[in-house]
């Protein structure tokens, strides 16, 4: 082995490095940092990235939970057991106001984060406050709808369809309510602790959560209310 001519081995290594088909297959990764890939010597991601990405994974799993409720609703939609159908219980004007409130709250939530990145405490709080009020309007309208329906005898135990309806819409409403509690906590933390790293990380997560809830609501109002009204 030792009498192998060294330059030939070196030649082979150089040839392998120059081969475009083998580029990027170096087991030890590229020597230089490659922009945006996390490869190279740029080191582990900062906590801001890791926290945001981890929360993104959680949100996707939460959306998968919602998809189970959607599937249950779709399967049970016809099982009305002689009770009210979806067409009987849909109130489109209320749904339109709920949709507008939640969409605007998503907008103001984004503006609050823009204010956070400009390190403006006042506008951060103002927009978070508007977000909270719009969220309250949404939850209030949904509660009003549930109370009205229950008054007409359309309770969850009336039929499999109504169970699916209350489970899906109620699960979303519960998320918005919990999000509202989180929002109040964040306003207090911004006020008392200021824009510390961990507070900003929590604001990123809260923004993600609130925008994701609006995305789920797009599915709810389309599949439950609009398709129900059109059916």
């Amino acid at each position: 082995m030792s009498d192998l001519p060294f330059p030939i081995a070196r030649e082979a290594v150089l040839r392998r490095r120059a081969d475009p088909d083998l580029a990027g297959h170096d087991p030890h990764g590229p020597k230089e940092a490659v922009p945006g890939t996390g490869h190279g010597d740029s080191g582990p991601a900062s906590k801001r990235i890791i926290v945001g990405y981890g929360f993104w994974i959680f949100l996707l799993s939460d959306i998968i939970v919602f998809s189970c409720f959607f599937a249950a609703y779709a399967v049970l939609q016809g099982s009305t057991a002689g009770g009210p159908t979806i067409k009987d219980i849909v109130d489109l004007p209320r749904t339109a106001i709920e949709t507008g409130a939640l969409l605007l709250s998503s907008f103001t939530c984004g503006l609050s984060y823009a204010a956070t990145n400009a390190r403006n405490k006042l506008w951060t709080q103002v927009f978070l406050g508007i977000t909270a009020i719009l969220g309250l309007i949404f939850v209030g309208l949904e509660l009003q709808e549930f109370i009205e329906l229950a008054g007409r005898g359309a309770t969850p135990q009336r039929s499999a369809f109504l169970t699916g309806f209350y489970a899906l819409v109620g699960c979303h409403g519960l998320h918005v309510s919990v999000g509202g509690l989180w929002l109040a906590t964040m306003m207090a933390q911004v006020q008392l602790k200021g824009f510390r790293h961990e507070i900003i990380h929590r604001l990123i997560c809260f923004n993600l959560f609130w925008h994701a809830l609006d995305i789920v609501w797009v599915g709810v109002f389309s599949v439950v209310y609009l398709m129900g009204a059109a059916a």
Binding site: A33, P35, G36, S46, I49, Y53, W56, Y113
Partner: peptide, 16 residues
């Protein structure tokens, strides 16, 4: 610090 990934929901550096 290197070229980092972008966290979802975070804002890339731009003006208000």
């Amino acid at each position: 610090i290197g070229h980092e990934d972008h966290a979802p929901g975070d804002e890339p550096h731009e003006s208000v």
